[in-house]
Design a protein around this nucleic acid. Structure first.
Length: 283
DNA sequence: ATGGGGGCCTGCCGGC
DNA sequence: TGCCGGCAGGCCCCCA
């Protein structure tokens, strides 16, 4: 699930239940996810106010009144569920407990926020807010793709020495932070660039075109997530479960959607991960 | 320094 | 119906 747009959708969905609200008590149901939780995480996440809920790349950051920031990564299968009815907008009851409900935030306002992650590739950590950018998981991240510093000059510069396929380069979080397999495939299709093309062999003009395509595919996905969240019909209140219509991702064999193109979407494997593209309009 | 592959986990789906 | 292999939206780590 979680690339940048999904994480942003989850953040926005969490805002009314969390931002400015007090966590009364946090239940921690196991010692770790991908890494051990920090010492006394449950206590450090109890009786604190969430002053701001931010996002950096695929990480959700909750600035707490204690001076610490909670860092949350959803990994591959992490989900966040909101239940209870504190503000009149979360109309569902608490869902049945699940064996993968690893951390549960009981809010003073009566809502319950459950972190569920079957595969446990997710992560949580606490660090001083004023040193958050120096955190191990954050300090090597490249620019935000929707931010001002991610522009044509930056990307052209970053790609010109990379001999790796453009697909791998864009998945490198040091180069640009927040893209994953889906949105790299989608952006490359929009830009007409084949995922196997060596990063240093893409013309300047096509690299320049790639920047707005990356931004637009992310913006479109965030907009789609936001709209499906607003009506909040899912019985369990799960955030981030919305259907996108992808042009290429997971559409092997489907007709290419480029006007006039007669190509079919192909699937190949690059560094162990699926890439989807149209061989006719992506070169 | 850069690039590629393995590994971490569980769940689901299709084929036999 | 059951079993098995393959696959999954991420990312760290090790090796060449």
């Amino acid at each position: 699930m979680p690339e940048l747009p999904e994480v942003e959708t989850v953040r926005i969905g969490l805002l009314p239940a969390m931002e400015g609200q007090v966590i009364a008590r946090t239940e921690v149901n196991r010692p770790d996810l991908r890494w051990p939780f920090p010492e006394n995480m449950g206590e450090r996440l109890s009786k604190v106010r969430v002053q701001a809920l931010r996002r950096r790349s695929k990480y959700i950051l909750a600035d707490l009144s204690s001076g610490e920031t909670l860092i949350v990564h959803l990994g591959m299968s992490g989900r966040i569920l909101i239940s209870g009815n504190p503000l009149g907008q979360f109309h569902h009851d608490h869902p049945a407990p699940d064996r993968h409900d690893h951390v549960v935030f009981n809010m003073e306002n009566g809502s319950r926020i459950t972190f569920n992650d079957p595969r446990r590739f997710g992560a949580m950590d606490l660090a001083p807010t004023d040193q958050i950018n120096a955190h191990k998981m954050l300090k090597t991240l490249g620019p935000e793709p929707l931010g001002n510093s991610f522009d044509e000059r930056y990307l052209a510069d970053a790609l010109k020495t990379r001999k790796t396929p453009i697909k791998s380069a864009l998945l490198d979080q040091k180069l640009v932070a927040g893209l994953g397999n889906i949105y790299v495939c989608e952006a490359l299709w929009r830009a007409g660039i084949r995922p196997t093309r060596r990063a240093d062999r893409i013309s300047k003009g096509r690299v320049a075109g790639l920047v707005p395509h990356i931004r637009e595919v992310l913006r479109d996905a965030i907009a789609a997530g936001g709209s499906s969240l607003r009506d909040y019909r899912q019985a369990d209140g799960e955030l981030g479960y919305f259907q996108h219509t992808f042009a290429v991702y997971d559409r092997e064999g489907a007709a290419c959607q480029t006007p006039e193109c007669t190509g079919k979407i192909r699937r190949i494997v690059q560094s162990g991960r699926s890439s989807f593209f149209c061989a006719l309009c992506q070169r």
